[in-house]
Design a binder for these strands. Structure first.
Lengths: 198, 198
DNA sequence: CGTCCGCTTGACTCAGATCAAACTTGGTGG
DNA sequence: CCACCAAGTTTGATCTGAGTCAAGCGGACG
């Protein structure tokens, strides 16, 4: 997720928001629950996922420190996915009604949220594009191209390959194999946590 | 795309927006072009797509009459996808700077756009979920479940199956075959343009 | 030192991509 | 009214590549 982090948390003219710590795997909210809070991530990383009938989880998004969670649910009745901590994390929670009130009154804050949602839409569209590709190699290349530095073509990995596999809808085996092939064909170079397109 | 259509076009305190007619396949804007306009669809349907290196198009979104196009690009430098008419269509165009000004001044209009973007985010997440499924049948079922009437389980098709195949990342052959299998297994019933889950 | 987990490779299976062809339907124009 | 065309729909045959199960390696961490 390449969302631009929110410049500043939403001020709601109330007491400072309380910080809530989350252990690895701890659930912040579940799909269908009534939306009462919006969150800004203080530390760590959260997973947004849905569960299939067979119990398997599908990753539909990630959010890291500085970003908000559940903004898209502000106008909905219930959360539309589960949210669980990926590693230890902490969030600041803001009451939904207060946030909505603040947005109504302060168009500057509304603009911040607008910008954030617009970035999310573009990010998600990029993900849809990648997932619409049928083969493994093009998915990886598109994923890397979206993250690599435009001039150097390098990307410093901030996650495991296994989690990348989840993001682009592949099994980790298929990902590793495609990576090996890409490297053999000199389309990419791996050097520790650094990947370079070439 | 199940976006809630915009309740009302953006008022910009200027002259009424001009309507522009588009022929089938006509390009409204291309990726990378500087964003100068935002559009509300008056009639017809538009495709949002990106092109791969090999020239093939990847569908990343659709928008129908009443919806807006390029809202997510309002804050970006350039459009992030191509937009072409799917059949004859017509759009109302609003100048980007005027829209941004209107949003700054009128928080009610900002709220409309916020709601719209939030809906887009949820819609796109649903699409990501579907595309993350590996097999054809679950994709189709998830797609139908998202559109079918909750009580009757029926969906009146407003597009061709071929275009559905594009949306869920399958070839049309794979889609037709999976459909036939689902129908044989009595998981769905097709009756002309009506599909019923069972 | 042992466990956990990410990483990597192998073998096998099968579903979906691909290429091909026929049928249906709707619309156009002679 | 019918010939014709375009596009969606359907089915067949083949093949590739991703999923799956399995196993081994290595580093991090307690």
């Amino acid at each position: 997720m390449t969302d631009s982090p929110l410049a500043s948390p939403y001020r709601t003219d109330g007491p400072a928001p309380r910080e809530r710590a989350l252990a690895d795997g701890e659930v912040l909210f579940r799909i269908g629950e009534t939306v009462t809070e919006m969150y800004v991530i203080a530390r760590g990383r959260l997973r947004l996922e849905r569960h299939l009938a067979d119990g398997r989880a599908v990753l539909i998004g990630r959010a890291v420190a500085g970003e908000t969670v559940a903004e898209a649910s502000l106008f909905a009745h219930g959360y539309h996915c589960d949210c669980v901590a990926e590693g230890p994390a902490a969030v600041l929670s803001y009451r939904r009604d207060r946030v909505l009130g603040a947005l109504r009154q302060d168009s500057r804050q509304a603009a911040v949220l607008l910008r954030h949602l617009a970035a999310q839409v573009q990010d998600l569209r990029g993900r849809v594009e990648i997932l619409s590709l049928h083969a493994a190699a093009p998915r990886i290349l598109a994923y890397l191209a979206a993250r690599a530095d435009p001039v150097t073509g390098a990307w410093q990995m901030d996650r495991t390959w296994k989690s990348v596999a989840e993001e682009i809808g592949l099994t980790h085996e298929a990902l590793y194999r495609a990576l090996a092939r890409l490297e053999r064909d000199r389309l990419i170079v791996r050097d520790g946590g650094l990947v370079r397109l070439s």
